[in-house]
């Protein structure tokens, strides 16, 4: 028996919108502490890791660990039928080949349930150890989205360089080049507007902008984004979901030939 009631149902809608274009199918792993998902994109260049902890749900019941394979496009279609203010409940029974999404309007005058077929997904689960990163940049998520969008109009790749001076995003294309430098800025009215750079060692890495732009679909989930880089590891782009968990995107770098 599985039953999860999320009062802020829009959160689940936003989570799906942030990952559905990167990953087609994924196993949702439910346990008593919450649910998680890990999946690579079809090209094995990027990886999504999602965690939503049970504490964030008004009601959370998971009698035993279970994994449900879902097509994220189909799940997104169903969740789009929920209103932004709706309460969303996910229900499943042991051994069933379906999952039910129930949508309740805040005034309880409309209740809908959508039953979705599950699928068998044979996916590889990677072990991602905790790592010490050379540099961690925390910045407003909207600013990061703007930079990725702007640079993608000039080039295909972005070089992200972190030095004592700040973080530089650079690209190069047929029409020219672009460099955007952000300096650490903690003297802001709101903490979420700050750019905070923790640097142990300078680092400079190149990434495909197409993937970075896909990650920024998670911008509605969080006012801030954290970018963690080390030369020998994929970059981690993390959007924290307040008091519930996170969506993390891991992206393998472009290597110099």
């Amino acid at each position: 028996m599985l039953e999860l009631r999320l009062v802020q149902g829009s959160l689940l809608k936003k989570v799906l919108e942030s990952i559905k274009d990167l990953v087609n199918d994924a196993n949702f792993d439910f346990s008593s502490s919450g649910f998680s998902l890990q999946s690579m994109d079809s090209s094995h260049v990027a990886l999504v890791a999602l965690l939503l902890k049970s504490e964030g749900f008004e009601h959370y019941r998971c009698d035993r660990n279970t994994s449900m394979g879902m097509n994220l496009g189909n799940m997104s279609k169903m969740l789009k039928c929920a209103g932004n203010d709706d309460i969303i409940t996910i229900k499943g029974d042991d051994g069933s080949d379906t999952v039910t999404f129930m949508f309740e309007s805040p005034t309880q005058d409309k209740i809908a349930d959508f039953e979705m077929k599950l699928m068998d997904i044979d996916s590889e689960h990677l072990g991602i150890p905790e790592a010490e990163y050379h540099a961690i940049v925390k910045m407003p998520s909207a600013e990061f989205a703007r930079i990725c969008k702007d640079l993608a109009s000039i080039g295909d790749t972005v070089v992200i360089s972190v030095t004592k001076e700040g973080v530089k995003f650079s690209t190069r294309g047929d029409i020219g080049t672009a460099n955007i430098v952000l300096r650490q800025n903690t003297t802001v009215d709101k903490p979420e507007d700050a750019t905070v750079i923790e640097m142990n060692e300078p680092v400079s890495m190149t990434f495909a902008l197409r993937y970075m732009n896909s990650f920024t679909k998670a911008t509605p989930l969080s006012n801030t984004v954290t970018i963690s880089m080390s030369p020998d590891l994929p970059v981690v782009v993390e959007y924290k979901i307040a008091e519930m968990g996170y969506v993390r995107f891991y992206l393998a770098p472009k290597m110099e030939e």
């Binding site: 690579m40 094995h44 260049v45 990027a46 990886l47 590889e124 689960h125 990677l126 072990g127 991602i128 150890p129 790749t157 190149t206 495909a208 590891l233 994929p234 891991y250 992206l251 393998a252 770098p253 472009k254 290597m255 110099e256 030939e257």
Partner: peptide, 14 residues
């Protein structure tokens, strides 16, 4: 031109 690395080249399968 840079080569795109694969994500599963960095982490081991569980």
């Amino acid at each position: 031109e840079n080569d795109q690395a694969a994500i599963d080249g960095y982490y081991e399968a569980n």
